[in-house]
Design a binder for these strands. Structure first.
Lengths: 337, 337
DNA sequence: CTGAAAGCGCTAACAA
DNA sequence: TTGTTAGCGCTTTCAG
């Protein structure tokens, strides 16, 4: 081993001195650009390696105007769904040399704008942001950003640049049709009270509208906020069924509360799907281990993240892709009326 | 899709021209540093705002050698646990002006080193990395990095700089003692086959060692890889109990497979915790909604993330904190032998 | 309180 | 194939 490296951070110049090759050529070797003789390359790499040199991308980015960062802005990390989108983004960025930087908004438009400003100050090569709803300031920044901007998870609205997602209005409507076709008529909705969750709101709206078209009103509805969603689903279901024992179908804002409701029904010996039908949303893996499979719709979040990343990596603009959320009937919607 | 003509990005100079104030003073205003008259400040802010100027932190970081990025390196995003650590980091960074940049290693040491190199090239203000096990190259880079390095989730080993986590060996041992005290003697372990999961391996080792001290051998063991963990837990449990019906306790590598096992037992009418006791690990919220609460240990992942972030934000070095994972007995370990 | 000059460490563009 | 010359857009430093 050589002696301890200096506390002063190493620069290209150190590698240049150690190898007797000009800074420019060292730079070429380290980036794998341009023609460099094998001998020179070896000398440079040996020097860089033995010094433990790590290039300074800040300087590199400033000089080249190329930044390998992608800004990712999502509401939260606690909701299972977003990490899965991140995983998809991570997968889609694979091999492109791009790296995700993420920020959470906690469903607060002002924080979204602040986080976005912060991220744009790094001049990322692209922006991926959840949803189509942004405040005026965020909207202006996104419109001015001269890089791919992909709004994900939702296509019910007008994107600023590209969008990849599903129509939550259509998803709600599609579920309503399946529920009606199965003969259920006294239908309750169990949602969340997170004001900023536009996608849940749209599903509910699509669901209610489709019911209305068939002359069926929403019979009851309730909402929760915070805490363990599985337990909340159980408790909400117990409360709603106590208040409205006539209900024959329960549509949940998401699979986790739906699973809680399902477990409650099974524990109570309620006949599912005969006496009461159930459905959630997201298509979580989780459901596969339950004693009975909850009806749901696959929200395609991994695929959405991956596709968004590909759009950014490809430097594309104006791409709009609406994926179709597969309806998974599971065991909680009866087949015959 | 289409492509857009590049626009020249705005610079300080544009704001300077628009406001008639020198670049230097504009810079001061925008950073809130130094004494600037209210009148000048207002003029500058008005100009910056109306232009939609976003500062270029790349240039700023190069000039000031200050970077508001924190590198976060975790094995994966699909395992619930890591997003929660990220959420803790996000919370701990709140108000510090620091932003997390994350990368996933997929439990591959070579990828860990590659991701780390990539991140260090941005000269982050700190590094938070999962675990104490790294390859020689990663270890060397971390040792040379002149910023806080916090290894999280595990304290069974020697950290490079700081560490915040729990002792998984002790956690396994502690669970073993609870199991033995309850009188269980024919004990099986249900784990994962992810080779790089050092923490699960350490829990198992601590568990087995503590059993051995009491003269009790591990009676059986099995492992899974991939797929829906809840379903896997159910299937593994079914298979193991079929092969070894004499087992009276099942220790799971994590709560999700444990929950799957619990649901299977309940569905089969197995007397839990009388005939068979069960325990998992992590203390997931999920468990609160199950018909019976699985015994587990809180792995303190949010707190760990937050604390690690605080260490980075504080610029601290050499801090070692071992949190204690609370034992949650739930309803799946009997109280009397 | 405000401004001018001199880089930060690297790479584009050109020269040799 | 390799080297030289200018910056990239900002902040530090020091002068007014």
């Amino acid at each position: 081993m050589d002696r301890r490296p200096p506390r002063r951070p190493l620069t290209l110049r150190d590698v240049s001195d150690a190898s007797g090759v000009s800074e420019m050529t060292v730079s070429r070797v380290l980036r794998g650009r341009g023609e460099v003789s094998a001998a020179t390359r070896d000398r440079v790499l040996a020097a860089a390696h033995s010094l433990g040199y790590v290039p300074n991308r800040i300087a590199g980015a400033l000089a080249s105007k190329r930044v390998n960062l992608v800004a990712v802005i999502i509401p939260s990390l606690s909701n299972m769904v977003f990490p899965e989108v991140l995983a998809g983004i991570s997968a889609g960025l694979e091999g492109s040399g791009l790296q995700p930087v993420f920020g959470a908004t906690h469903y607060d438009p002002a924080r979204e704008a602040a986080v976005l400003y912060e991220m744009l100050s790094w001049r990322p090569s692209g922006v991926i942001v959840a949803g189509l709803e942004h405040d005026a300031s965020a909207r202006a920044m996104l419109a001015q950003a001269d890089v791919p901007v992909v709004e994900v998870l939702d296509t019910d609205g007008t994107p600023i640049d590209s969008a990849v997602g599903i129509s939550h209005i259509a998803a709600g409507a599609s579920m309503a049709q399946a529920v009606l076709a199965a003969g259920y008529r006294r239908i309750g909705y169990l949602g969340t009270s997170v004001g900023g969750d536009h996608r849940a709101r749209k599903r509910r709206a699509g669901f209610v509208a489709a019911l209305a078209t068939a002359g069926v009103p929403l019979a009851a509805e309730t909402a929760y906020d915070g805490g363990s969603a599985l337990a909340k689903g159980r408790d909400m279901t117990a409360a709603l069924m106590a208040a409205r024992p006539d209900l024959d179908f329960l549509y949940y804002a998401n699979d986790v509360i739906g699973a809680g409701g399902l477990l409650w029904c099974l524990a109570q010996g309620v006949d599912v799907p005969g006496r009461v039908g159930l459905a959630g949303f997201n298509g979580l893996d989780l459901l596969e281990g339950l004693p009975r499979r909850l009806a749901t719709q696959d929200s395609r979040r991994f695929a959405i993240g991956r596709r968004a990343a590909e759009i950014v990596a490809g430097g594309l603009h104006g791409v709009i892709e609406t994926l179709t959320p597969e309806l998974i009937r599971g065991d909680t919607i009866r087949t015959l009326p």
